[in-house]
């Protein structure tokens, strides 16, 4: 890796849906080995950012660099080959396939069978419930189990960069913590770089760096210890409005 060059650099990105512009000049960095949180409320443009980075939405202006290479507008499958994997909002399960088959799909780009087997081993160790239900159709899993499966599936190809869209969506508090723990664990133990998009401030517990997105623009940024202060700020802002 080139010194000082972040793994992912998003530079002046603008995009939207048809005539509707959603992102305006969004710039942020995801340094290798870090967990970066992109915080924002409903409709701030979080999912749109991920969709634009992964080539699902047309880039109107700006660029996305991976490891210094321009990957702007590259298709999702090309990004997977470069080690970028998305855990989509709403989990994106193949409901009629079994748990094991869903995991197998996550390893689609891995040619070496031994590696795939190792990935299965790892997934089942980390998520025992998935091992228990490996033959069950994914559609019959509960919401939290599906979220687990989505994360496990994303990790199957040994990605360098994991993009997580609202892992906490529809999860109980305990399950939200588990999901965040798993993401933190993947980062610490497997060295996966993570970009996590969230509105739950608990995500900042594991973030090394964080950005706040509001109405399609980056309005705040924090790094290292300052992330804790940001967590306080966001919590206060939310609670202030909520008037608890």
């Amino acid at each position: 890796m080139t010194n000082g060059e972040p793994l992912l650099r998003v530079d002046g990105l603008s995009s939207g849906y048809g005539a509707l512009r959603v992102l305006f000049d969004v710039t942020f960095d995801v340094p290798a080995g870090e967990v970066v949180a992109l915080m924002g409320s409903n409709g701030a443009g979080k999912t749109t950012t991920l969709k634009t980075i992964t080539g699902q939405l047309k880039v109107l202006s700006g660029a996305v660099h991976l490891d210094g290479d321009d990957v702007t507008g590259l298709a999702p499958e090309a990004l997977v080959r470069r080690g970028v994997v998305l855990v989509p909002e709403g989990r994106g399960m193949l409901r009629d396939l079994s748990v094991a088959q869903n995991l197998e799909l996550g390893a689609y780009t891995v040619a070496d069978r031994a590696q795939v087997d190792a990935a299965f081993e790892r997934a089942y160790t980390v998520f025992p419930i998935l091992a228990e239900r490996r033959e069950q159709k994914a559609g019959t899993l509960s919401g939290g189990q599906q979220q687990m499966l989505a994360i496990a599936r994303a990790l199957m190809s040994n990605p360098r960069l994991l993009l997580v869209d609202e892992a906490s969506l529809g999860l109980s508090p305990v399950m939200t913590e588990t999901a965040f723990d798993l993401i933190g664990q993947a980062n610490r133990d497997a060295g996966v770089t993570v970009l996590i998009v969230e509105q739950n401030v608990l995500a900042l517990d594991l973030a090394h760096r964080a950005y706040v997105l509001e109405r399609g623009q980056v309005v705040d940024m924090a790094e290292g210890r300052a992330v804790r202060q940001m967590q306080g700020r966001l919590r206060d802002a939310y609670l202030g409005k909520a008037g608890r």
Partner: peptide, 13 residues
């Protein structure tokens, strides 16, 4: 069923 999924704290409030 999970009315507040996808909402931020202030919207949930």
């Amino acid at each position: 069923d999970e009315a507040t999924a996808g909402l931020g704290p202030e919207e949930a409030h």
